[in-house]
Each structure stands twice: as C-alpha cells, then as structure tokens.
Write a protein that binds this DNA or RNA. Structure first.
Length: 660
RNA sequence: GCGCCCGUAGCUCAACUGGAUAGAGCAUCGGUCUUCGGAACCGAGGGUUAGGGGUUCGAAUCCCUUCGGGCGUACCA
C-alpha cells in the first residue's frame, strides 16, 4: 500500500493495546493527536489520564502499562511517558524515509481513498438569477466548491446542485421593468446590462414607495421612544440598589433603540431623497404608485402560467444565466445539476398535501403551518393567499434529491442567518420520514468591510462580484509586474505571461482569503492583505510552489525520472525531516478538514508546508549538495513538497503557475 | 421579549472539539546575506483568552452570571 494516514495507523495500534484495558476504547482514540510541541515528539497520546480515572489507578502507572504493550516499534522510537501521563511518540527516521520513497511514485501522494464511500448532495452558490451576484455569494460558492473537490478526492460520490433562485419576486421585478421601462435598443444590444438596469430601477422604485408609506410610522415610533426615554431620565434615582441597576439597564437599552431608529430613519430619508432629487426618477415614481403590488402580481401571473410572462421568463433566464456563468468560469466552478426553484413548482402542492394528510400541518391564521417541537414560530408551507414559500420548495427539493440520488448526506452551504430556517426544514423533513439522511447546514459568517459592517460600497450598495474579481486581478498584476521588474538580472516575463499570472494569482487571492478563515466567523475583506506576498495567502503558497519548480528548470531535471529512483530519502538535517513528515501529513489535514467541513484546516496545512519548505531551502543546498545521492534526495523532497502544495491548492480550487 | 452566534497580542485571525509554557501573519524593534528565486530566513517585545463564579488531574474550549457586540425571530429568500 503506498502511503497511509499516520494518525489513523497510530490509533489502530492504540486500539489494539487499549482493548486489553477497557471494553470499548473507541472514544479514547480521539486523544491520540499530533504533538502540540516538537519537544514532545511527533504524536502524543493523552489516553492515560481519563483511563486512569475509569480504572481507579494512578495515570502514570496506566501510561507505563500502555507503553509496555504498545506495538509501534516498526514506525516509532521507544514511547516516552511525560508529565501526568502523556505518552509521546517520535517516528523513526528510516521509517519516514521509506514512506516518502513509496509516496513519491504515487499520483495521490499516498493519500488513501475512504473505505466506505458515501453519496453527498452539495447545495451551494445558489444565486438569484435576476440579480447581479455580489460579495455575499462568494463564500458559499468557494467553500462549496472546495468541499466538493475534497470529498470527491476522498472517493465519495458527490452531486453538486446549484439551487438557483429563478422563480421569485426578482423576476416579477424585471418582468414589470421590461414591460414599462425597457430601452428596446439597449435590450437588443446588451440584454444583460439592460435587465440588470431594469432590476435595479424597479427595486429602487418599489423601495421608495414602501419607505414613503412606512416612514411616518417609523418617525412616530422614534418620537415615542424619545419621549419614553425622557420620562425615564426624569425619574429620580431609586433608593433600592437593585432597582437602580435595572433602571440603568433599561435606560441604556432605550438609548440604543433611539440611536438605531434614528439611523433607520436617516437611511430611509436618504433613499427618498435619491429618488426625489432626480426629476426622471421622481416622475417614474409618481407614474407608478402601485409598483410594489404590481410586481407581486407579475410574479403571481408567472407562477399561474400566464403565457406572456412564461415566454418572457424563458427569454430572460438564459440571459441572466450567462451573466452568472461568466463568474463561474472565472472562478473555475462547475455544477452537476442546476435544478432551480422553478423546477419544483409543480411538486409543491403534493408536499403540502402530504403534510396535511399526515396530520403534520394545520391551518393557522389562514396559512398552512407545520408546528415543530422546540420552535416558537411554525414553519409556514403555504401562505393564506395560497402561494408557496421557500420552505415548501426546500421540502420538495429534499423529496426530489432523496428519490433521485439516494444520498447519505445533503449539505447546504448557506450563510448563518438562515440557521433557523434550516433547523426547521430538517425537523420537518424528519417528520415525513427522512430521518436517516444526514442533513447539514454548513453555515458561514458575513463578509465585512473595513468598518466591521457588511461589505458595501461607499454609496451603500452591495459590491458586485465581477468588479471585485477585476480589482483583485488588477492588483495582482501590479504586484507581479513590480516584482518581475525588480529581478536582479532582468525581467523574465512577457506581457502575456504577466497577464496570465495576474489572472491566476488574483482569483486565487480572493478564494484563499475566504477559505483560510474559519468558516463560522465573519471576516474583513481587505484587498491589500489578500494579494500580499507574505503571510497566510494564496500568493505565498503559489510562490513556494514556483520556487520548487524553478529548481528543476534551473537544474534541468526531469522530475518523472527522479520519482522512480529506488532508494529511501535522506532525512538527516532537521529541516529535511520536518519537511518530509509534513508532506506525509497531507492525508491527515484532508481528513480533518472534511470532519467538520472546514477548508481552513487545509489552508493551515499548506501554510505550514510552505514554511517548512522555506526553512529547508534556506538551510540545505539542493543543486549544490555535497554528494550526488544527497542532491537526488533533496530534489525528491522538493518535488514532494511542490506536489503537496499543488494538490492541496487544487482541492481548494486554486491553480498554480510555474513562474511568477 | 425570546432564540442562536461571538468577545483571544496594537490590527487581522488560529488553536486538531477538554491537554503540557494560548499560537501565526501583519505592524514595531533587532539580526542573517559575495541571493541554488530576499516575494526568504532567524530572533525580541507584546496576553489576567471581556469580567466574576463553578465543574476536574487539566478550561480560551463545558456550566452559571455580568458586561459588550452581531444575527434571527408567522405567511421575503
């Protein structure tokens, strides 16, 4: 067997040993982990302490007993017991060298596929087709794509399905816009831009009228709050300390509310002004006072099968889709299926029927509701006007996926704000019998701007994804050009090469910045940091890879031939050993990343690998090594390091270049 | 009001799900070097992990509580 997961192997050995001490040692095996500190060796087992408690014996004694029975001599030096009962393991250099040799001819770098392949449906990206994609879509797309690549690499069957929003109110908007505001010539020449303009125009007008209706009430509420606040402030301090504290808290809460509402009112007024200051917009707003309900009617007509709206929908969809495809092409993202919301339209009634017939739903306030244990609000699957909701579509989607793909798991890569929705959805799905499929919401945080608020332009609009990518590429180009110009001898890249490199580096920077963050946390969007050449960035990994490649071109060495060399590697220098071990641990990194669907584990691994390589390269001469055999060994190590980095990046959906 | 998430170095973030002295990258300061790619490497300073209490051999991590933030909260997605 070429290669293995070292951690898995060690756990296997511990499993055998621990069976003599306890009935089921499975849960203890998680306590065999990579060492926290190089001083403790390569791996450590923390099993003795909890076990000692269970057995009622001193932990060091238990540790000693484990060490005596442990069969690891073929891969480790003698285990050591330290501290309260930690068992420290250090892999044998000759074993590592042997492993590396085996791995070097293996396409997969010794990473085994899983024994029990499963079927996953991955639901990610899922933009609304009538709206331009914006920064908020990038995380779902990039994280989903990476998980897809990783799971496939591990041998799972993965079905990626882009659940497009192609049936909602946004289509009502462009239908209305097309019918009332279109510029026919523009539409003929550049339909994408024209539809996008219409969408923005209609949504602005709809919002305008909404605000005009709601603003007085909002202002009134604000006035009331201020009044209450004044009253509270006028009250003298209470004699009771506890009461005084509560009053202070109430006061703070009120003040926050007032500030919040003031901001709301100000934002609303600004939006009104934007329309009113433009004679053109003002005129349109006056001519279309009922645009809000009219848009809903267009949507309803579409859903009811109105021939004209259906015809337009069929005409618009490919146009919108094409716009989105440009982004996917740039990001190198593909899907197996794109069953959008529209696909499920004629399956919604039966979903509701099933719930009603099963006695799982009942009518409340005219709407069909599913009341679920542990939730205050029900999940509404049909509105009082008869319309269906996204909850209905999502349930129909689960039906379809279960019947079509028979998945073991369905993963939804969607931002954290929809956590509630998914909890209800999953609970409802279990109610109708889908209790064996693993339904998971892979949630992620918000992309923030410099100010710590959701990333917007200065004008307050969301940032279009295409412009974002352009900017990253532009900056990457500037950096690549500057660096090439500064090379000690002379620049070595022509314009085409520079453009290609900037393209790869720029897109990689965006993806990596997203993936290297723990997905559950929000993160600040910062071009400078993304395209930075140092630190944990795609650029640094790509640079490290390019360095490994440049050694081969400089030495005019054929890597293929090198891989076939039939002798173990030399790991005498500490940096050689550290790099070699690091290469062998890609398998662990992938396994851990997939455990909780966290690509940032993989980026962390790559960063470590790049650092190990730098250290090695700094301290060990490769082409000028003392002997031929050492030179060959080090070249092989460079090859392995480069391949580990390239493979890791590939699993993140990031490409490499040979020179940069 | 209720529910969920979060608070870690000046800044941006990790921390293998309870392990040993909490780590990186920026930034700051110092060093290496007649560059196999210096887009590098080595080192230093910087912390009461928001505060308090608890659980246990052991807590950033689990429980309670206070403070501060974000998000969601019956017919949008």
């Amino acid at each position: 067997m070429p290669g293995m997961n070292i951690l898995v192997e060690l756990r296997l050995r511990f499993h055998q040993t621990l069976q003599g001490l306890v009935d089921d040692p499975t849960d203890l095996l998680d306590l065999v982990v990579p060492a926290q500190d190089p001083r403790f060796g390569d791996y450590q087992a923390n099993v003795a302490m909890p076990l000692a408690k269970r057995l009622g014996r001193p932990p060091r004694e238990v540790a000693d007993q484990i060490v005596r029975n442990l069969q690891v001599a073929d891969l480790c030096g003698p285990p050591e017991v330290a501290g309260p009962g930690f068992i420290n393991l250090r892999l044998r250099d000759d074993w590592l060298a042997e492993q590396l040799q085996q791995v070097s001819t293996d396409q997969r770098l010794g990473i085994p596929a899983v024994d029990d392949p499963k079927t996953f449906v991955l639901d990610y990206s899922s933009p609304n087709v009538a709206k331009p994609m914006h920064v908020g879509h990038i995380r779902s797309t990039v994280i989903g794509d990476s998980l897809c690549r990783i799971l496939r690499f591990l041998g799972h069957r993965v079905i990626s399905d882009n659940h497009l929003g192609d049936w909602g109110t946004q289509f009502g908007m462009i239908l209305y816009g097309y019918k009332h505001f279109r510029d026919q010539q523009q539409f003929a020449q550049a339909p994408v831009q024209e539809l996008s303009r219409l969408y923005k125009l209609v949504s602005q007008l709809v919002e305008y009228h909404q605000i005009r209706r709601s603003l007085p009430e909002l202002q009134e509420q604000l006035a009331q709050r201020i009044e209450i606040l004044d009253q509270q402030q006028a009250l003298g301090p209470s004699a009771d300390a506890a009461e005084q504290k509560r009053a202070a808290k109430r006061l703070r809460g009120l003040k926050n509310q007032v500030v919040e509402m003031r901001d709301k009112v100000a934002a609303a007024e600004k939006k009104l002004a934007a329309v009113e200051e433009s004679t053109e917009l003002n005129r349109l707003a006056e001519q279309h006072p009922n645009i809000g309900s009219a848009v809903l009617e267009e949507t309803a007509r579409l859903h009811a099968g109105d021939p004209e709206n259906i015809r337009l929908w069929h005409a618009f969809l490919p146009v919108c889709r094409e716009e989105i495809q440009k982004i996917y092409d740039r990001l190198d993202v593909r899907f197996d299926y794109e069953y959008g919301e529209s696909f499920y339209q004629d399956r919604l009634a039966e979903v509701v029927d099933r719930f009603r017939q099963g006695g799982l739903a009942r009518i409340s306030d005219g709407a069909v509701c599913v009341f679920l244990d542990g939730f205050q609000a029900p999940m509404i699957i049909q509105k009082s006007d008869g319309a269906y909701l996204y909850a209905t579509t999502d349930l129909a989607t689960i039906d379809f996926r279960m019947q079509t793909f028979h998945p073991d798991a369905i993963l939804y890569v969607v931002d954290h704000r929809q956590a509630d929705h998914f909890q209800k959805l999953f609970a409802a799905a279990r109610l109708v019998g889908y209790d064996r499929v693993d339904l998971q919401h892979i949630s992620f945080g918000t992309v923030l701007g410099d100010d710590g608020k959701p990333y917007k332009t200065r004008a307050g609009d969301t940032v279009g994804l295409e412009g974002l990518l352009d900017e990253a590429v532009r900056r990457a180009h500037a950096v690549v050009a500057a660096n090439d110009d500064a090379k000690p001898t002379s620049p070595e890249l022509d314009d085409d090469q520079r453009r290609h490199i900037a393209d790869v580096v720029g897109h990689a920077a965006i993806k990596y910045a997203d993936l290297c963050q723990n997905r559950t946390s929000d993160y600040k969007f910062d071009y400078d940091k993304m395209v930075a050449l140092e630190g944990n960035t795609a650029t640094y990994m790509q640079y490290s890879y390019a360095r490994t490649q440049s050694i081969f071109s400089k030495g005019q060495i054929d890597a293929e031939q090198l891989r076939a060399v039939d002798s173990p590697l030399c790991l005498q220098h500490p940096t050689e050993r550290a790099l070699g071990l690091q290469v062998l641990r890609l398998s662990e990194a992938i396994a851990e990343a997939v455990l909780d669907y966290r690509p940032n584990i993989l980026t962390g691994y790559l960063f470590d690998t790049a650092k190990r390589f730098s250290e090695f390269y700094q301290q060990c001469q490769v082409l000028k090594a003392e002997s031929d055999s050492l030179r060959t060994s080090r070249l092989r190590l460079c090859d392995l390091a480069g391949r580990a980095i390239r493979l890791g990046l590939e699993l993140l959906g990031i490409q490499v270049v040979e020179k940069m």
